[in-house]
């Protein structure tokens, strides 16, 4: 069984890892992580330009590496800010795809659902493919789908915590209620968290901190990429039901009378 291509808005990816570039020590670290994992899609923020001097800009490097660039609205607290940021991203990158983040405060970085849904609705009406970062609320995920987003991206735990998937049951329920792509975003700490996300039925995983701030980012990028593929296959393989008591795997037949 092969991993099937996944459509996210107008992007198509063959590798189910989306690499977040936040927290990387250098552009070289990002390039090494891209190469090690095989990711085809990386997220970036929109910020004031600074003269790069003689060094290569992040934009030029990502273009050279031929990865698709997914801009986000990181740092936006209101729908208004997020919509203008998405328009700026569209202008800078000539893409209609936006990862929508509208957060409530700096301490938790948790999504602000009221502003988020307003921004999602407005951006969809302006022709954007919206990939919406959200809390792990299955009903709200369905609400986002109903306003026309292209993917729902629930958190496993708050951004940067590396706490893994705190409520696997919610992710599992979201998988049942949301019929568009579901991407686990935020909270991944290590490879097994990514495998679990895929086993729960997510279509892809976004990992940033867990890779960029690992001691060896490229090695962790490879580990998480492999875990995602393992989880993808496991989800489709049809796992055995959990049982209370043991079930022998070796038949009794032919057993010696000792």
């Amino acid at each position: 069984m092969q991993v099937e291509p996944l459509k996210l808005g107008s992007y198509i990816i063959n590798n189910r890892l989306i690499l977040g570039t936040g927290g990387a020590m250098s552009h070289e670290t990002i390039a090494e992580s891209i190469a090690a994992s095989g990711t085809e899609l990386v997220t970036v923020a929109i910020r004031r330009i600074k003269p790069t001097g003689s060094g290569q800009s992040l934009y030029d490097m990502l273009r050279e590496l031929k990865v698709q660039i997914l801009p986000n609205t990181a740092g936006c607290f209101t729908a208004k800010e997020a919509v203008v940021t998405a328009e700026l991203a569209r202008e800078a990158l000539e893409t209609n795809v936006i990862k929508l983040e509208v957060i409530a405060d700096d301490r938790t970085l948790l999504p602000q659902p009221l502003e988020l849904i307003d921004a999602a609705e407005e951006l969809v009406s302006r022709g954007f493919f919206v990939l919406a970062y959200t809390n792990d609320d299955p009903i709200f995920g369905r609400n986002l789908q109903s306003v026309g987003v292209s993917a729902v991206m629930p958190l496993g735990a708050p951004i940067g915590t590396g706490l893994g998937i705190r409520n696997p049951h919610n992710i599992s329920l979201m998988r049942e209620l949301v019929t568009i792509p579901l991407v686990l975003d935020a909270g991944i700490g290590t490879a097994s968290d990514a495998a679990l996300a895929m086993e729960l039925g997510c279509d892809a995983v976004l990992a940033a901190t867990s890779i960029t701030r690992a001691d060896s980012p490229a090695v962790m990028a490879r580990a998480i990429s492999l875990a995602i593929e393992a989880g993808y296959l496991a989800h489709r393989a049809g796992r055995v039901p959990k049982r209370h008591l043991a079930l022998a795997s070796t038949p009794d037949e032919g057993r010696a009378d000792l």
């Binding site: 997220t43 330009i49 986000n72």
Partner: peptide, 8 residues
């Protein structure tokens, strides 16, 4: 004047 930077 804006461009892309590391994030997300």
């Amino acid at each position: 004047i804006l461009t892309i930077s590391q994030g997300g």
